[in-house]
Design a protein around this nucleic acid. Structure first.
Length: 215
DNA sequence: TGCCAGGCCCTCTTTAGGGCCTT
């Protein structure tokens, strides 16, 4: 398999709130490009969307109104980000959140967002059902993955999500004998959800998805 | 005007409710 086919873009946004549908905007973006489990490139930028950052968000992320005031405009940052990702499939921790902002911010920049998103929350629920918490920081601690700095900055969280994804792929190879746990396999595994089938069938589907790849 | 996410997953469930996870 060519390296480009195993390329995955792990993304994290910092934002002004929970929903772009309510007018919230991105304030920072970070993307870690993985190839065969190795970080091969990084993209990071604060972005000025021209909206006020609530005080509690500044307290949470450390990103202030003054910081984004001197940052490049959201539209140009998103254009660069889209070029950086290209056609690589994407991964995020709680992907529904980052996918909403990826699509909304690209739409505001007049750009399409065709990438498929896999979700490390859903994957860790399938793979580590015994974990007491599936928060990014809790999983990083539990799996003893490296922490590169204080959480709630985009690159720190993107690096942690990339480390988590790499561990998930490692465990799929070693524990479940999945020869090539690429993005297509991750999408199949995360689709084994109760939303699409009864719980017992979902559990069986996870087991089947894992064992089907065994030699 | 005031309010406001949304999808997954569990259980004291499925004709529902609430916790998790992201900022």
């Amino acid at each position: 398999m060519p390296a480009s086919m195993s390329r995955i873009a792990v993304i994290d946004f910092e934002t002004t709130g929970m929903s772009p549908a309510l007018g919230d905007r991105a304030t920072e973006i970070a993307i870690v490009l993985l190839e065969r489990g190795e970080v091969v490139d990084r993209f990071q930028s604060l972005m000025n969307a021209g909206v006020h950052i609530p005080a509690f968000i500044t307290q949470l992320t450390g990103i202030s109104n003054a910081m984004v005031a001197s940052a490049p405009r959201a539209q140009s940052v998103m254009s660069e980000a889209a070029r950086f990702v290209g056609d690589a499939p994407m991964v995020a921790h709680n992907a529904a959140f980052d996918r909403r902002y990826w699509q909304a911010e690209l739409a505001l920049a007049g750009l399409a967002a065709p990438q498929a998103f896999a979700c490390t929350v859903m994957l860790s629920r399938r793979l580590y059902p015994e974990a007491p918490s599936h928060k990014l920081g809790a999983l990083v601690q539990r799996l003893r993955l490296p922490q590169t700095g204080a959480a709630h900055r985009a690159m720190v969280d993107a690096e942690m999500a990339a480390a988590l994804l790499t561990q998930i792929q490692h465990d799929l190879r070693v524990r479940h004998r999945v020869a090539e746990p690429d993005h297509r396999f991750l999408m199949r595994l995360q689709a084994c959800s109760r939303a699409a089938m009864p719980r017992w069938l979902a559990r069986q589907a996870v087991a089947d998805a894992l064992s089907a790849e065994a030699p």
